[in-house]
């Protein structure tokens, strides 16, 4: 008796679960709901608010007056801000190019060594990547400052007579940026290079291609998705970065990230800061779309 009741209960539960299993749409929605809601409240709504704020007016005391106004965007065409924008793009591009030139041969090398060694080499790339990034900047401050390790080393060797002023210059900013973003370039490059089948290269060699020709016509084109992913992952954060310029560039280096930060926290012109932030966001989205459409982009390179 008891057993048979239990049996019917089980059967009933099975049935209702079967019904639930049938409606996979409801299940899917239930699983995605927390993420969708969370990102709606803490990402989408805040961004919309910034968009609205960028069309408002700054009040006399740094407060926000809710009066429609497009001046915040026209102000961005001012030569002063255009120069900041061009400089940010320049720093982003230089960082991307240097990390690519350094990272590509290294990724190529890692992809060609035996598997055991490869794991060690990848591990060594990951360690600094997982280490705090302010600590990494600090290491370079220690080395580059006027009384720093590089200068005392060169002075002791007698190679220079006066200490070099490297810290708080644009060069220092580039050194810091390249160091920060190198792993972001190497990892996607490695992922795409590692996928290339040896058979393809052998076939090319069998058909008489010299190493250079087979690199240019097989390896390089096949690594383009990695170059795209690496460039996006380097260029965009480099362009919006304000911590490296703050710590290593002194007051002279102002990137668009610094501009946004300053408008919000120092100048207290929130509407203009919001407009600069919108510009930065549109720039990054436009570039991402352009690059991914042009070269193709595979999402597994990101993670």
């Amino acid at each position: 008796m008891a057993a048979s009741t239990r049996g019917t209960v089980l059967k009933k539960r099975r049935l209702s679960l079967a019904a639930l299993r049938e409606s996979t749409t409801a299940q899917g929605l239930a699983l995605i709901a927390p993420t969708a809601l969370y990102l709606l409240v803490f990402m989408i709504v805040p961004m919309i608010l910034v968009g609205i704020l960028s069309l408002m007016t700054r009040g006399p005391y740094g407060n926000v007056v809710y009066r429609l106004n497009f001046d915040n965007y026209t102000r961005l065409i001012d030569p002063l801000y255009l120069r900041i924008l061009m400089y940010s793009i320049g720093v982003g591009a230089a960082t991307t190019l240097i990390t690519l030139v350094i990272g590509y041969p290294l990724a190529y090398y890692i992809a060609r060594v035996p598997a055991r060694q490869r794991n060690v080499l990848l591990f060594l790339i990951l360690v600094p990547f997982w280490t705090n990034f302010i600590i990494r900047i600090y290491a370079w401050i220690m080395i580059l400052r006027t009384e720093g390790l590089l200068n005392s080393f060169l002075l002791n060797l007698g190679l220079i007579k006066v200490p070099l002023d490297i810290l708080y210059t644009p060069t220092a900013v580039l050194i810091g940026m390249v160091y920060e973003f190198l792993p972001f370039m190497i990892l996607p490059l490695y992922t795409s290079l590692e996928k290339i089948e040896n058979a393809q290269l052998e076939a090319a060699a069998d058909l008489g291609a010299r190493p250079l020709a087979s690199f240019l016509r097989i390896t390089f084109p096949l690594s383009l998705p990695g170059i795209t992913a690496g460039s996006i992952l380097t260029f965009i954060p480099a362009m919006g970065m304000f911590v490296v310029p703050d710590l290593m560039g002194g007051a002279k280096t102002i990137l668009i990230g610094n501009l946004v930060r300053n408008q919000f926290l120092t100048a207290r012109d929130w509407p203009f800061g919001a407009a600069s932030s919108m510009l930065l966001m549109f720039l990054t989205l436009a570039m991402t779309l352009y690059y991914t459409r042009k070269v193709g982009f595979s999402e597994d390179l990101l993670v």
Partner: peptide
């Protein structure tokens, strides 16, 4: 829509997300 929304924090500069949250 949700799938592409997931990529936003991966792609946009942190400063943009930071000030959005501050404003919010």
């Amino acid at each position: 829509l949700t799938e592409s929304t997931l990529y936003i924090p991966v792609i946009i500069p942190e400063v943009v997300m930071g000030i959005s949250l501050l404003v919010f």
